Amino acid sequence: MPVIVLEARDFSSPLFIVRTLEVLSCCTVFSLVASMSEDLNPSNFSTFRVFCMFTWCFFFVVTLFIHLLNTIQFHNLIRISWKNLTMTVAVMGALMSFSSSAVFPWMVMDHQKVSARAVAAAVISGLTTLAYASEFFVLRCQADEQKGYMGSTPGLLKILQLWGGVQMIPLVVFILRLSSGLHHWQLWLSCTSYGVCVLMSLVTLVVILGDFAGRCLLPFDKFLACFSLIGVLLYMTATVICLTKILQLNGQKNSQTDLVIMETVVSSVTLLAYTVDLAFAIKLLCDRSHM
C-alpha cells in the first residue's frame, strides 16, 4: 500500500490540532518538572514525582507515535485496531493527566517555596488533560463503526478499570513504606487484588487491540463477564480493607491518612466501574441466550 501524506486541509482538522497540543503540552510539562528538582518536595514524595513524570513522558511518546502514523497514513499497515487504540490513548491520557494534575500540586510541589515553573507545570498539566478530553469528544462524535469497541460504554468502563489499577501502584508503594501500624496481610491482600485486576485489564486490552477476540478459547462475551466478576470480588475485598485501614487510624491526621483516603476513593470508583461492566456483560449474555 502506498504511503499517503495528508492534504493541506487535514492539518487544520480538530483531531490534528488536539494531538499537536497534546504532544506540545506533554513535552513542556515534563521538561519543566525535570529542570526544577530544587523546587520540589524533598521529603517523602519521590514515588509520586516518578509517577507524574512517567505519565507525561509515556503519553508524549505514544501520542507522538500515533500523530506521525496518522499523518503519513501508515497506520493501515500495522496489525492493530487503530480506532480502538486511538480511543484508548485519548481516554487513558485524559484520566492519567488528570491524576498527575491533582497529585503534582498536592504532594510533589514544595509549598514552602512555590516557583513560577512549578505553577506553570501544574497549569500545563491541566491543559494536557483538556487536550486529551477534547480528542475523546472528537472521536466520540464519529460514526459508531469508527469508534470501535473501546468507544462504547463497556469499553470506556474497561479503560476506567485499567486507570484505577494503575493509580494503585504509587499508592501501594508509598503506603508500604509507612505500614508500621497496619497488618501486613491487609497490604499484601490488597496488592494481590490490584495486581490481578491490572493483569486482567491488560490482557483484555491486548485482545481488543490485536483483534484476537475470535481466537479466544471461550466466547469473548463470556471471557469479559468472567473478568468483570473476578474484578468485582477482588475490588470489593480491597475496598473493605481500605475502610478497615481508616478505622485503624483512629482519626489521626498525618500523611498516611490522606493516602488511605485516596486509595479508598479510587478503589470505590474502580469497584463501581467493574460492577456496571458486569451488569452490561450479564445483559449481553442474557440477550444472546434468547436469540
Rank of each mutant, 00 (worst) to 15 (best):
S99Q: 15
F30I: 08
L272P: 03
F48R: 09
A118R: 01
S12F: 04
P219D: 01
C286R: 09
S193W: 03
F30H: 10
V29A: 13
S289H: 09
A102M: 09
L95T: 10
A34Y: 11
G214P: 04
I78L: 06
S201H: 05
T270R: 02
K222N: 01
V206W: 09
S97A: 15
M96L: 14
K283Q: 13
S13Q: 05
H290N: 11
G251P: 11
F11H: 08
P170I: 10
L171R: 11
L271E: 07
L217Q: 12
I246W: 06
H111A: 07
Y194F: 15
F51P: 08
S193M: 07
L32V: 00
L130R: 05
M291L: 12
G126H: 09
L139E: 13
G164E: 09
I78K: 00
V62G: 07
K245D: 13
T192I: 08
E145Y: 09
Q256F: 11
W188I: 04
M236G: 15
T204R: 07
W56Y: 15
E135G: 00
D10G: 11
F104A: 11
V138Y: 08
C52N: 15
H75V: 01
G210I: 00
S180D: 15
V23M: 08
F59G: 05
H67D: 07
V198P: 06
V5R: 04
V172R: 11
I124N: 04
C26W: 08
V5G: 00
T237E: 01
G251K: 07
S13Y: 02
M150V: 09
C197H: 11
F48A: 02
L139F: 11
P42F: 10
F11I: 01
M262W: 12
V62A: 02
M236E: 06
V61H: 06
D10H: 09
Y194S: 05
